[in-house]
Amino acid sequence: MTNCWPEGVLRAYLDRELPPAEMRAVADHLAGCAECDALCAELAGRAARVFALIDELPAAGNAARLRPAPARTFSRWLWPGVAAALAAGLAIASFTLRRPEPPAPLAHNPAPVQRQPQAPEPVAPVAPAAVPAVARSAVSRVAPRRRPAAPSMDYFVALDDQPIDSGVIMRMAVQPGGAQADIIVDPQGRARAIRLVGTRQ
């Protein structure tokens, strides 16, 4: 019994939480020590009984562990939203840039020097090639402002274990001048997931 392992090591051995060399050493010892072998069996039986009882407590579906939430959980509403926002942006940009200049005086001034510069202007934005060009330039101007300068952690931490079908991402300041967090709030107003922003170097 002089070289026997303490109870805590035997308990860790049962959970395979020892380094490989120590696992082998404990296994070798148990093969030759009836006393430690009996203690190990007692610890294993007690652990099984205790966790069988605790496992009777109902979990809400699968146990919710702190882990990166899969991106697909909210892609169902995210991508249509992005597409709709992009379409709206394109429409506004094309409408704004298509607005004609104020009309010049018409028949009162028939001189050709004034008519010639005005003629192409209403026609040019209607040309099919002009709209994508305008849209691209409008998007490229907007995009840098929409993306935060600070790097963010690229995953959310689920606050429960239910899939998130839809929701709104709200950004809140954690401390003035400090880190921020994005929170997904579902249609019932409950916070479903959190993502820390600006914490990674």
Binding site: E7, G8, L10, R11, A12, D15, E17, L43, R46, F51
Partner: peptide, 30 residues
């Protein structure tokens, strides 16, 4: 532990040494 945390995670969560988790767990179960 019932929730599936490994000893290293348990030690970090409870602010104890990883090597003492086995002892603490055996005592808590008893």
């Amino acid at each position: 532990r019932a929730d599936g945390l490994a000893y290293r995670e348990l030690a970090r969560s409870l602010g104890v040494e990883p090597g003492s988790v086995g002892t603490m767990l055996a005592r808590a179960e008893a």
